[in-house]
Design a protein around this nucleic acid. Structure first.
Lengths: 339, 339
DNA sequence: TCATTTAATGGTCACGTGTCCATTTCATCA
DNA sequence: TGATGAAATGGACACGTGACCATTAAATGA
């Protein structure tokens, strides 16, 4: 393996000087720099970051833990963050927790073992791993939460204006004349600290809308879960006239259910969802969606983390919120029967 | 930072013994093992892999370079590989090349710097970086190509039976009675070594079908490119009666174009595509697709790479092909006018 | 009981870099 | 010309581990 010593020997300088050609080129004469640069190119030398990591105490690597890489929200986030992080010379290690605390803990250990310089986390529900995160932080890893945050977390975060977006969505439906609005979301939201789930009943109440017990469901919703729940809701004697899906993932399941019941959107039921996944504009009718500024959020997260690492200010806490945008395409309309 | 020496001190043993509790526990007395294990837990010790990497020469890390993480094909691949790799104690560093050789080179340097133990690559078109890959291999990184391979590559690969799948697709359309079939793919396929693009004209020829010049297009197709091309094709005086999209990415663009022209599927035009993206079964009608066994391919790739690394046999070359599956859902039917 | 083997445990060193301090070379000015 | 300081270059060491060899304790057999 080629080392800086090989480069130094070939350029006829000391190892220290050779290193400076990479790290502090302004300290070298033009001639020396030129010679070392050539030697580096000739030998295809690439500094060994594992050695640097040992000396430095961290690996110039950012860890990213998401819920599930397959969900377009996380895929896009991953891509944006990867790009931003690369641009500043860091590598990105990814893992997903499948919204499970145990799997998350394993991943955290992995990140710890690799001495990641920073960690961007979409933590699983429950705060079981907050202690581990705190220890990681004490040992020198900068930590930032994204998309969701743990109760009592001392760390910074990058989040959507969740409550505001839920309010925007419900208001929109209410203004169209809907009274029976059901949300596809987590309803033990208090326990799970899910902001959207917590906001929904509050917004309904503030608009004077009744939220029947049967519209409330107590599970974390997968696409499959959303499918069953939607079937169930729409078969009620008093079915909702509008369905508001809190994630793009759930939207797919709900859409499948609506189609299976041969209900028309928006004539029979209005449909609104978070996340503008590619299919939402391909189906008929195209769906009304609340878009998250994923790229902005990813860039902000990467910047916050790397700035903190480079300024060696691990105590810095940055908390940022981003607004969502409601796009109307035709999947929401006034309800048929104004009872 | 807690080190193995701290653990050793607390357990009242030497550092070497403490290390063995992790690496070769069978060598220790039950009592000793117990004491060390407790000390590790008490101190929340996690071995520093950056130090191990320096000593070992590689970082117990696998690099994965895909075309674009956002494409569901790659997202799913990433997820599967990440999981498989974690299960065997490796971390996954990801990067995407956006199908661009220059960006790819930057990423390769990054992987090199981090001394990845293995590298799974969906290389960009063109073979500009084959030399770099070869050097990387000489320096101790095991390399495996996936989804696509470079001409003259000495490395192993995991691929779909591309030619066979194209043949299956064209045959299917031909059996339905289609003669004017257009493919959305790369047509300077020879140069770009795209297997699907290369197979299509051959299959058409072998079935005695004419492939007009106007059905051939010379660009790497993005979703946007597929959209324009589809518009163009369907506006011809002799438009194709069936469109065969070679990637799920292009399918989205093509579908958009077909809908914009208010053409009905399959009455006005039949539509077949590679990749079963989530939207393909949500649209109306659901699309006929050729499914790739992404999970099998990802697992196989991870296994090949890690087996090679652990057996220290970097010269091992494994080449595997996986079959695709055609799923019929109703987007293909006999053409209207049997001229 | 002691020699011999086997099971446990301990000690030393190198991996390639970043950091810090030391030394040499060069330009400036009285 | 020599003193002075700045610019440029060089040297030594430690980071925490894995690999290898060395040592000590326990078990075995006569």
């Amino acid at each position: 393996m080629t080392t800086i010593h090989d480069v130094a020997k070939r350029a006829g300088v000391s190892a220290t000087t050779a290193k400076r050609a990479i790290n502090e080129p302004q300290l070298l004469t033009e001639a020396t720099l030129e010679r070392v640069t050539r030697a580096i190119a000739d030998l295809n030398y690439e500094p060994d970051r594992t050695a640097g990591a040992l000396r430095r105490g961290h690996s110039q690597t950012i860890g990213l833990m998401v819920g599930n890489i397959i969900e377009p929200f996380f895929a896009q986030l991953t891509r944006t963050i990867a790009k931003a992080v690369h641009a500043r010379g860091y590598a990105l290690i990814v893992a997903d927790n499948e919204y499970d605390s145990n799997l998350e803990l394993e991943n955290l250990r992995m990140f710890h073992g690799h001495r990641v310089s920073g960690l961007i986390v979409r933590s699983a529900f429950g705060s079981g791993n907050l202690e581990y995160l705190k220890r990681l932080h004490e040992q020198g890893t900068y930590i930032l939460e994204i998309d969701h945050f743990l109760a009592g977390s001392p760390f910074g975060h990058v989040l959507l204006e969740n409550a505001e977006c839920v309010q925007m969505g419900v208001r929109y439906l209410h203004d169209l004349g809907h009274k029976r609005i059901a949300a596809l979301t987590v309803f033990d939201a208090e326990k799970l600290q899910d902001e959207r789930g917590k906001a929904f009943p509050n917004v309904m109440k503030s608009l004077g809308l009744h939220l029947p017990k049967v519209y409330q469901h107590g599970a974390t919703l997968s696409e499959e879960g959303a499918y069953s729940l939607t079937l169930e809701l729409l078969r009620l004697s008093e079915p909702p006239t509008a369905i508001f899906s809190m994630t793009g993932n759930e939207a797919a399941g709900a859409f499948r259910a609506i189609r299976e019941l041969k209900l028309r959107i928006p004539e029979d039921v209005s449909f609104l969802t978070f996340d503008d996944y590619s299919w939402t504009s391909l189906v008929d009718p195209p769906l009304d969606v609340i878009i998250q500024p994923i790229e902005d959020m990813g860039l902000a997260a990467a910047k916050i983390v790397i700035d903190a690492i480079q300024s060696r200010d691990l105590k810095k806490v940055v908390r940022k919120r981003f607004p969502g945008t409601l796009i109307r395409r035709g999947s929401c309309a006034p309800p048929k029967n104004k009872k």
